[in-house]
Design a binder for these strands. Sequence first.
DNA 1: TTCTCTACTGTGAACGCTCACAGAGCATCA
DNA 2: TGATGCTCTGTGAGCGTTCACAGTAGAGAA
Lengths: 343, 343
Amino acid sequence: MTMSNTGGRRRPPTIHDVAREAGVSRGTVSRVLNGGHYVSPSAQEAVNAAIRKTGYVVNRHARSLITGRSDSVGFLLTEPQERFFEDPNFNVLLSACTQALAAHDIPLLLMLAGTEDERRRITRYITAGHVDGVLLVSSHSGDPVAEQLREAGVPLVQCGKPMGLGSKVSYVAADDRDGARDMVRHLLSRGRRRIGMVSGPLDTPGGVDRLAGYKEVLTEAGVEIDERLIVSGDYSRASGEAGCARLLAQAPDMDAVFVASDLMAQGALAALRRAGRRVPEDVSVGGFDDSVAATEATPALTTIRQPYDRISSEMVRVLLAQIGGEDPAAVILPTELVKREST
Amino acid sequence: MTMSNTGGRRRPPTIHDVAREAGVSRGTVSRVLNGGHYVSPSAQEAVNAAIRKTGYVVNRHARSLITGRSDSVGFLLTEPQERFFEDPNFNVLLSACTQALAAHDIPLLLMLAGTEDERRRITRYITAGHVDGVLLVSSHSGDPVAEQLREAGVPLVQCGKPMGLGSKVSYVAADDRDGARDMVRHLLSRGRRRIGMVSGPLDTPGGVDRLAGYKEVLTEAGVEIDERLIVSGDYSRASGEAGCARLLAQAPDMDAVFVASDLMAQGALAALRRAGRRVPEDVSVGGFDDSVAATEATPALTTIRQPYDRISSEMVRVLLAQIGGEDPAAVILPTELVKREST
DNA sequence: TTCTCTACTGTGAACGCTCACAGAGCATCA
DNA sequence: TGATGCTCTGTGAGCGTTCACAGTAGAGAA
């Protein structure tokens, strides 16, 4: 009669139906559902059979209403959206986080805070308790959203080291400084001495730390730091191109350049090509990330691999621990030099 | 005393608190929350003031428990994950869908069905009613997940035309055939006659339709269809490179090639470069999608713009309509020729 | 006046689950 | 033997909403 055109979903079985089917009470079914402690093996078995038979799936809304947990997690991106489109790393991160959460049966809610309006709406949504915790991607410093969430006591794990170190916030990051050291040592081992650097934004720890590693190794090796060999970009391809062009203008004798992201390195390759420099014969190029941009570039980029899969799983691990009541934690993961054609 | 280290969230205000504050009953508050019909202006005003004062946010779990709706939507990707990493279009689609839903205050749950196991879990999650509807990205034919969801009566909108046309399922797609026609006409207008094609997979409507458009225009123009000028790829960069190399081997006199995706076109450019052909002097290259891959390519690609932002907003519109009880609908959106350096 | 209709408001009962509690059965120990 | 523990089970209450229903007040018609 009232069969709707959408196919007419029928009322799904409740815990009551399962209890009746198994010949036990709601309480027992609930106990089986939540770990099965204090349940006799026979009841356990009967309930599981009843669940299979009825096709029962727990109603998360009802559960959340009473537990106060939502059993869901937000993935919040406060970067400008274009970066999301452009940077292949976000995809890996997002995908790996989704999968890591799925293993715990926790859905991921994607939240994009582009405009001020969205930012406000999302903050309200989160602080209202509609997610248990937040995975935050925001490399820029002084993110007001992060601060607000922290104040509201929302479990939070940031991807990448946050700028204000005073605040006790969880984060998972690759060892930027050490990665940079490896790359510059590698360039030195190739006989390069006039090594340029296109760093990331200097209001981000990633930008600062990679530059610090670069300077550290050069100083160790007795190579003079030349400020004309240093510029900074914003991780976009275009800024890599512009930055490298500037380096070439300021220091025409540059024989290598360490670029703080693969995407910027792609841009740098374009600038070098336009300037008629051969890579790696005239100028070696080193990237950072080991994203698909590195393998797609011509020539393929030597780069520093950031273990995004491990970063993702650690972010999820730390977040769930924090939701479980543990203290915030910082995790730094090792990077790896990946040699390809550009050096 | 029991202040937890997470900062101690306090109990959020309920509809009851708002009612007390406003001096009205729960029912009145609820009515204000849901459209405000049959509420006096004075009560309306009092309730809104109370909401602002208490910082009340509706508890979605409680609401969902009684309405049966979850007020959330799943974004389901059944493609192999690598495509997700590689193809910039997915980002645009995902991001635009998230934003379009956000405008309706509906969160998006990201669901990646890579393995068989995940597929099963996700299907159960969806059919249990934990989302009101699903935005599905799956260009390949005979997707068992789609079929299962359709049978379960879950509102569903697919991105791209589905293969089995018999089944009544909503979809939003660009006009592939017409886009292909525009591109081939454009190549003809550049004086090209030996026009090759690297199509998409021929078990997808996109693959079939773009090839059909290609053949149609050539036939109209009186140009003979030469099967040696036609190969098919899988939309990946690598397959574009391999496909174009094969075309060059089979038909060395090829003077243009229409490649069914920008990513494949990037590969084709690489193959042409390696073969020593200049683009566009010796061979014109046309892509499809107008993704960032098109502007990043050297030379920048002439391509067919798919209106992904409109596709996204239409997908959301159609899905919400279907959740609201309307019949499934198909939407075909026009494409646009974008001329750049490669032709 | 009385009756009807409309605009508005309050109340109790759900929704499906978890949790605290009480209590039953059984073994162990003084 | 009774007290004490342990394992296991059922029951009622309640989470924060919405919804159906009943009911009130005022305007207009009979």
